[in-house]
Amino acid sequence: MSHPLTSHPLTVDAPGRSPLRITLTVLGALAVVATYAFLIVSQPADVVNGPTAASALVALTGYGLAMVFLFVGILPTLPTTTLALIPVALVLNIVLGQFVGTTLVPIYLDSIGTVLVGFLAGPAAGAATGLLSTLVWSFFNPTVLPFAAGAAAIGALAGLTARLGLVRRFYVLPLAGIVTGLIAALIAAPVAVAVFGGTATGATGAVIAVFRAAGDSLADSVTKGAIISDLSDKLVTFVVAAALAYALPRRSTQRFPFVRKHRVLAGAKSTARGTDGEAAPAA
């Protein structure tokens, strides 16, 4: 702007993180924690009575509020490069998730796109991608909608993993995937019990049936089933998403300020300018 010949900028930066937007994001995270706490504390010991009104409605209301807070807090702050990537991530989640969902393997692979955005654009973008992915997928399969908070947590943790430099350290990456899987499972299990009565399809359903056959309570069986599925799923997801990030040309990855600022990917030192055309080593 200081240049006398510059009449008007063609592009503008996305609005920064104002205190209001930070407050909304924190409120969203608090709504997730409070809803989770309610579902855990109010979990009935006896499930024979069937569906109840309170737990499912509290789950959807609490996570719905969290979704609204996080959307308003995060979405307007995302740069256009990240915004344009989010639909791609959603489509990857849906295509890969639907493919694996038809197999009898106890993993979902329905969050590779979300994790990829978390790696390339940071925790906030990852959380927004998780939420949006669930919202868009619910147009085809409405049963995924109650799991929006878990999807947001996966994206945020993937971004945190990249922020901490763990995508550069391949040997730690599976561990980050396992921790993310554990947290995702703990968030998803009470929702699965409250809204769907602990029913899951595919291999996860078979794992739950095995624990029920052994006499475990419904909540314990669903939690164990979710942990078994999510640990292996997120381990594979994190490794595959990292492999995809390394397979991308550097001119694609260096478009993301988060990758440049935090040197997310291993290899030649990232610079803000002039790396077009240099291919990163294929994964």
């Binding site: 344009a84 990537l85 397979a247 478009r255």
Partner: peptide, 28 residues
């Protein structure tokens, strides 16, 4: 099959971002 698909989609997303910026998508 998946790697070429992802490369193609991410590359297109980058081009779309430039087009969106040029059309003032981030303006309030």
């Amino acid at each position: 099959q998946v790697v070429p698909l992802v490369l193609q989609l991410v590359d297109e997303a980058g081009e779309r971002a430039t087009a969106l910026e040029a059309r003032g998508s981030s303006l309030r």
